[in-house]
Simulated scan of single mutants.
Amino acid sequence: MSRRPPVEVLLRRLDPEVPVPAYGHPGDAGVDLVTTEPAVLAPGERAVLPTGVSIALPDGYAAFVHPRSGLAARCGVALVNAPGTVDAGYRGEIKVTVVNLDPREAVRFARLDRVAQLVVQQVEKVRFHEVAALPGSVRGADGFGSTGGHADTDGPAGGHELASVDHDREGL
């Protein structure tokens, strides 16, 4: 199986002490982003943390800022707009909007702490065609929680009835 060469991304370090984002392990999808400023977030507090880097992505690509699973599990830190989108035309500093969801403990970030990960992906351009009605599907308009899977749910999300389907559902 042939492997595509890595996508070339131009990077500008706005702070010379910030490491060039790198993959932690072979096969990782995201590179680590650090913060350039220390911060303390009280329970429920959010902050916008600078990362000290800006990038120039090739047309047809976008970068997505994802939370770090360890921060979420250990400290209750989440990203307010996860994933954050960095468009190919954006040249400003990448910033990360974090929130402390822990109800009791403050979260402290030191300068150069890893705060998020950046995943670069190819994205497709689309052209929308307005129509009076969309073609049917098995799922229909069923949305949030429509497949169940949580012990506290009692059927589809919000108690909405499943859309009727005019075919045999056996074997689905």
Results as ranks from 00 to 15, higher is better:
Ser2Phe: 07
Val7Leu: 08
Val7Ile: 13
Leu10Phe: 11
Leu11Ile: 15
Arg12Asn: 10
Arg13Gly: 03
Asp15Gln: 01
Pro16Gln: 09
Glu17Gln: 13
Pro21Ser: 05
Tyr23Ile: 05
His25Asp: 11
Pro26Asp: 14
Asp28Pro: 04
Asp28Trp: 02
Val34Ala: 06
Thr36Met: 05
Pro38Arg: 10
Val40Gln: 10
Leu41Phe: 09
Pro43Ile: 10
Pro43Asn: 07
Ala47Lys: 09
Thr51Ile: 08
Thr51Lys: 01
Gly52Ser: 08
Val53Gly: 10
Val53Pro: 00
Ser54Thr: 11
Ser54His: 09
Ala56Thr: 14
Ala63Met: 05
His66Trp: 12
Leu71Glu: 07
Ala72Gln: 03
Ala73Val: 15
Cys75His: 15
Gly76Val: 09
Val77Trp: 00
Thr85Glu: 07
Glu93Asn: 04
Thr97His: 07
Val98Phe: 02
Asp102Glu: 06
Glu105Pro: 01
Val107Thr: 11
Phe109Glu: 05
Arg114Phe: 03
Ala116Thr: 02
Gln117Ile: 10
Leu118His: 02
Val120Leu: 09
Val123Trp: 02
Lys125Gln: 15
Arg127Trp: 03
Ala133Thr: 14
Ala133Glu: 15
Pro135Cys: 08
Gly136Gln: 12
Ser137Asp: 02
Ser137Met: 02
Arg139Asn: 08
Asp142Tyr: 06
Asp142Phe: 03
Gly143Glu: 06
Phe144Asp: 00
Gly148Trp: 02
His150Thr: 11
Asp152Val: 10
Thr153Pro: 01
His160Pro: 06
His160Val: 11
Val165Met: 07
Val165Asp: 13
Asp166Pro: 15
Asp166Leu: 11
His167Val: 15
Gly171Arg: 10
Gly171Glu: 05
Gly171Tyr: 00
Leu172Arg: 15
